[in-house]
Amino acid sequence: MPETLSRNSHLSVIESGIEPAAVALQDVVFERQGKALVDGLNLTLSAHGTTVLMGPNGAGKSLTLRIMAGLITPGHGKIRWNGTETLPSQRVALVFQKPVLLRRSVRANLKHALKIYGVPRSEQGQRLEELLEMGHLKELADRPARVLSGGEQQRVALVRALAARPKLLLLDEPTASLDPQATAAIEDLIRTAAASGAKVLLVTHDRGQAQRLADEIVFLNHGRVTEVTSAAQFFDAPRSREGRTYLSGHLLF
């Protein structure tokens, strides 16, 4: 039986360099209709800092996030989490490109999240106020979440993810359809999350955003990692041919 990503799977400790690894993917393969969309992916993420996942459309970036979030099970390969034997699911939070908010007020959306994440009832009120504060959502707290603007909705979605106090925050193009001001607000929240110790893994096509936020760039093409480079080096001189082609604006095949 292949080892799958289940909440109860036995997970071993991986050491990588000086800093312990938060998560490591080993030879992960995910196929759909006979086509390998994630094709032998190897990736080790350190426990802190912001890693930006870049690559052309169809490279498998979103799938990689979904595999890490436990939403899909890879056909082959292993995922290993550091430290704990089992991964408490709420320590990994995922923010989607298009926010999915419940048909309730902003406050009720956050309250629902705190409840699902198992925050004790006595602490919920205080945590709720902190989250509203963090997302600058106080004035919007009692508005129905679904009538907010795209930027406000994404702020709610991101703050809701932070309600989990995640160890690993996965962000799938969170600002792809937002204006510069809303994007800046989201980036501030991402910085706050990273500063509070969460590992951030961000998928983006926005080169400026990657430069502003990334400590490290992981470049993906055809479901494989072509390079893992520090952000400074990647934007100066990417090591892989695919990375160079992508940055110069040519099409990758």
Binding site: L71, F96, R103, I116
Partner: peptide, 25 residues
Amino acid sequence: GEYDELLRSMGSRRLSTVATLLWDA
């Protein structure tokens, strides 16, 4: 169909998923 990925990524249990959906619908 709309909520599934969100609720699963949050680790919502089956019973609270049902409750969430009933309330929102």
